[in-house]
Design a binder for these strands. Structure first.
Lengths: 245, 245
DNA sequence: CTCTGAGTGTGCGATATCGCACCCACACAT
DNA sequence: ATGTGTGGGTGCGATATCGCACACTCAGAG
């Protein structure tokens, strides 16, 4: 019964869903579902991870915190990925914080189990590595975007990345939260969001942004979003996942 | 004779040097030294790599090129690493360009050989994955630094990263080249470099920057440099490499 | 129903960087 | 020794973003 529930849940994470049946059957008992609240910290910078996390409905931000206290997001992970790649990459820790950006459910897997499965060297390993490369692309594009694009476009990119990883058009998040992710002032986000609302691409309510015209949002975004999106599809889509393509 | 030369060369790349003797002996015949000129392109964005490259004296920049033609560097690779992680990560291609930022020698290894060695699943694989994580840290820090720090500090970080990967204090590179890497205007680099020269941290000659006071340069840099440096040492240093620590 | 505070909208001067323009000067080739 | 072109220095107005201040307003608590 509990197993059946977990299996359904597992199928909602693309990496797990992309596993062959016999692999998933072996891995299922090692997964346990956990609810996560907004703002919850999965791990701190430099902290050894006890688990890896496969998000299903939750979204996790990888956040870097400067000595000054300023923050900037380096990547977003949803049901397309896994949080805790350093477990199988061999580093054990990373220099960023993993924090819940949108409440929801994750499937957690013990450190030891992750390493064991990875060491088998078959499809699980292949999927993890391909996902890690996709994540590298996202981080790279964040670097480039931070350098070259104005806030307005970056906000669009960020909203789209979040929207892709959610299952609703209503994004429950304050301008202040977004400003911490983008590493800009709260006012900058308010300004950019107001402009987007005036153009009817989103609506802007206390603590909630609703995506109205997703297609127009993609047009308003810089090329960075499409680059990342295309690369995710290439690396994890057609031929890799059972549901993509 | 040729083999002896290659072995000496191989020992100057930290990843190769960190291999156990028997592993290196097996891998040596698969390596061939190649001289690389400034500006030479190792691979284009989206282009399948025929080889991976272990730099010895050369430095390679991973450069992203926007549709507009603007560029921004996402990482620097020297004799501490390997160019072409996408070969074993499974993606085959990446969205950036690999370009020689400082002329010198690399050891190239055929795609097939790289994959074969990686698939063995032992120390070579472990080293490659740990290095990839280190590279991810560098890319992440680039993202953060691009967002939060002024050009002056970024230039220091960049000079230090380059200096670490060279074997001389004379960095042969124009302000124009550096501006393409940092994704800023050439004038911005000139201004920042002039300030550093006024403070006697570097000297500034036609096409050459010489590091005078490395320690002061580290102080002038943002924390990003130390974060990356520390993480490289942690992941690849003491206990991993035969020469580090 | 009212109070309160978190979330938002707006204005203003300061600063960093940009884009452009132009000149200078050194290194190398003739 | 002299010309030429690449690389470097400088100035200026435009723009994006910042930091701060303050006013408004909705939603939930009492």
């Amino acid at each position: 019964m509990a197993t059946k529930m977990t299996q359904d849940l597992a199928r909602t994470n693309y990496l797990l869903d992309a596993l062959h049946d016999e692999d998933l059957r072996r891995i299922l008992p090692k997964l346990s579902p956990v609810k996560m609240e907004l703002g919850q910290v999965l791990y701190e910078s430099g902290e050894k991870l006890a688990h890896a996390y496969f998000p299903t409905t939750a979204i996790i931000s990888l956040l870097y915190i400067m000595e000054s206290g300023s923050t900037a997001e380096i990547g977003i992970i949803g049901n397309d990925g896994i949080v805790g790649v350093s477990l199988f990459m061999g580093g054990e820790t990373t220099t960023n914080r993993g924090i819940i950006q949108s409440a929801g459910c994750v499937l957690q897997m013990k450190e030891k189990d992750v390493k064991e499965e990875f060491k088998r060297g078959d499809r699980f390993q292949e999927l993890m590595l391909r996902y890690t490369q996709a994540l590298m692309t996202q981080i790279s594009q964040t670097a480039v975007c931070n350098r070259l694009h104005p806030i307005d476009q970056q906000l669009c990119r960020w909203l789209l990345l979040s929207h892709d990883r959610l299952h609703t058009d209503k994004l429950v998040m304050t301008h202040d939260l977004i400003s911490n992710m983008l590493g800009v002032r709260r006012e900058g986000v308010t300004l950019a969001a107001t402009k987007l609302a005036a153009r009817k691409l989103i609506t802007n309510k206390r603590g909630t942004i609703t995506v109205i015209d997703r297609q127009a949002l993609e047009v308003a975004a810089c090329e960075c979003y499409q680059v990342v999106n295309t690369e995710y599809n290439r690396l994890l889509g057609r031929g890799m996942s059972r549901t993509f393509g």
